[in-house]
């Protein structure tokens, strides 16, 4: 098993290397010139050209690529072309709002979705199941920004229970953090609850089909008890998986949510960087989010081998 884990960890390296290559190629094929946006709207072509030269953008692509890789190996993501700040510092500054809100929405989703999914599995094929499934499908059929606008309109603009926008760190007081984070987290949660509830239902149904559960049934153990004691425990790993892989979905979701709610997180950082062709920031961000995704999946794979006795390598 240890051998498998080592092998899995080593497999991360080529994947991340390919991500780096893809990201670099996609960006440098993108039309757009950061020098033009730095110089501003009324700059002349000459001014832009001289700026481009001094920013090192006239170097051949492969030279720029190897410079970047060289920096990466030292843990340095480079320097923002626009603000001149280091990308490491930018990300360190902006990642906490995103992580905190993502974490809050994961907690909220699991708290809502697992009971819902369990209910659906228990009432499988009956009315309760249909209702839960319909709600959860609806959850990821509505675009996130629509959900966000409706929440702002109802809870902030009309009822005035919560602030419209902004972010407070938990260190500034948990109450303030929650007041600002609850609407964005709810927006993200809508789609996430749907995904998790469906997965919970599906894996519970799978487990319930297994022989040992049938045996328990046959021994006269009550439905609900079987479901909660045996089913949920054994369905934990697939549920964990969806929580993990759904993280990628969250990272996509924050791009929208952070601009609707004005949260200074990495989602907005990325979109701003794309719009300004701030290459080092975009590269760093995509590498980071991909890295998180790969890491989470690695941990889940390892958790499988540790927790699920049926999987052996």
């Amino acid at each position: 098993m240890l051998g498998y884990i080592v092998k899995r960890i080593l497999a991360v390296i080529p994947v991340m290397a390919i991500v780096a290559l893809i990201v670099f190629l996609i960006l440098r094929l993108t039309p757009g010139d950061p020098a033009a946006i730095i110089a501003g709207d009324t700059a002349t072509p000459d001014q832009i050209a001289s700026l481009r030269e001094s920013m090192g953008l006239n170097e051949p692509i492969y030279v720029q690529f190897f410079q970047w890789i060289g920096q990466l190996l030292h843990g340095d993501l480079g320097t923002s072309l626009l603000s001149g700040t280091s990308v490491n510092a930018l990300i360190a500054d902006r990642i906490w709002p995103t992580l905190n809100i993502a974490l809050l929405s994961i907690v909220m989703s699991v708290a809502i979705a697992v009971p819902l999914g369990t209910l659906a599995a228990w009432r499988h094929g009956r009315f309760g199941d249909h209702v839960v499934m319909a709600i959860s499908v609806a959850g990821f059929s509505v675009p996130a920004f629509v959900v966000g606008y409706v929440l702002i309109k109802v809870f902030a603009a009309d009822l005035r229970w919560l602030p419209v926008q902004g972010y407070r760190a938990p260190s500034q007081g948990m109450g303030e953090f929650l007041r600002h984070a609850i609407l964005p987290a709810m927006t993200l949660t809508a789609a996430y609850v749907a995904l998790t509830a469906r997965m919970t239902r599906a894996s519970l149904l799978n487990v319930l089909g297994e022989d040992y559960i049938r045996t328990a049934h046959a021994k006269g153990v009550k439905d609900v008890t079987v479901l909660l004691r045996h089913g949920l425990r054994n369905a934990a790993v697939p549920i964990l998986t969806v929580v993990g892989t759904g993280f990628a979905m969250l990272l996509s979701g924050v791009v929208v949510v952070e601009s609707v709610f004005n949260i200074p997180g990495i989602g907005r950082l990325t979109i701003d960087a794309v719009m300004a062709r701030d290459y080092p920031v975009i590269q760093g961000m995509i590498l980071l989010t991909s890295g998180i995704y790969v890491l989470v999946n690695l941990l889940i794979d390892i958790a499988y081998t540790v927790f699920d006795p049926r999987i052996r390598y």
Binding site: V15, M16, V23
Partner: peptide
Amino acid sequence: MRVMDAFMAIPPVLLAVALVAIHG
């Protein structure tokens, strides 16, 4: 599969944003 893993690791919206920026 390594290439596919790499593409899967990049958040879909970010990948799409970058690609649309390329092709207009």
